[in-house]
Design a protein around this nucleic acid. Structure first.
Lengths: 156, 156
DNA sequence: GCTAAAACCATACTTTAGTATGAGGACAAT
DNA sequence: ATTGTCCTCATACTAAAGTATGGTTTTAGC
């Protein structure tokens, strides 16, 4: 929070300096204000988006408690006596984080670590780390097993 | 999403008009660009925040929607010779043999090639051969992709 | 009986996947 | 201000997975 303010202020300061500099050099200013203004608009739109995200993005990790959701329950009837009920499990129950869920889903869609890394703009090392942690949390030895488990638990 | 784009564009247009109007009236423009620029910065920061919120505030996080899906099922017909009747894409359509299906199912359950070899009393080399052939028939590069495809096609 | 397809096995090789470990930054909670 | 969690990235390694190729053997159909 404090940090964002500092960065925001710094950006403003830098821009102010740039403006002054341009002013001294008589460039662009007098002739094409539209371009100048547009640039400012674009820059501050970006800054605004970034700031807005930082300000509003926090702590919406698992907002499920705010929402009432009907969860499907699969009942496998093998006879009259032998019935198995698969309940849905939440990521939190297993300590699975947001990023890990993201990667789990991509794994289940059949992407390689390399592809996942490219899709998420992360390093392949990071993907491997997340994957390894996932396997521990899902009690799996391989990604295929992790996927299988996740489907059983209705995580994905 | 489209709506936001339209609103955003409209705001831009309105601002452009305002700028032009100000320009025509010789106001502020020539003397205090700082004020003008600051106003622009503030306005577009606000616009940016608003846009950012609209774009990212989606409740995408972990809300599971209940979707009712009709899923074709395999019906085991007792009698004759244990034939399997199915309504979805059949293995035969893709030229997938009986053994290959067997191995596909074990793969989907998360077993390693070695484990599948042990379960089926085959060599691991054989499993690999079957797997490779499966990937060609399922147009997959990896086993996870093959599993994903097979699920899509309701093969498993 | 001949043929085609399926099933089986193997060697040699390349490519991914996965483990172990360490480490630094961001951030929320205390 | 510190602590714990999450996220990130890295190196170095081992274990699997996957490819290419070339075989032999069943098996089912004509």
């Amino acid at each position: 929070m404090k940090k964002q303010a500092i960065i925001f202020g710094s950006v403003l300061a830098v821009l102010a300096i740039c403006i002054k500099w341009l002013e001294y050099r008589y460039i662009i200013l007098t002739h094409s204000f539209e371009i100048y203004g547009s640039a400012l608009a674009i820059i501050f739109t970006i800054v605004g988006i970034w700031t807005g995200r930082k300000l509003t993005d926090r702590k919406k990790e698992y907002i499920r408690e705010e929402v009432i959701v009907e969860k499907p329950i699969y009942i496998q009837v093998a006879g009259t006596d032998n019935r198995v009920v698969h309940k849905s499990t939440s990521p939190e129950d297993l300590g699975i984080s947001k990023r890990e869920m993201e990667i789990l889903e991509l794994m289940a869609q059949g992407f390689s670590n390399q592809e996942i890394a490219e899709k998420t703009f992360l390093s392949i090392h990071t993907i491997k780390t997340h994957a390894s942690n996932l396997f521990i949390k899902l009690d799996a030895k391989r990604r295929t097993q992790a996927i299988s488990r996740a489907k059983e638990l209705n995580l994905i």
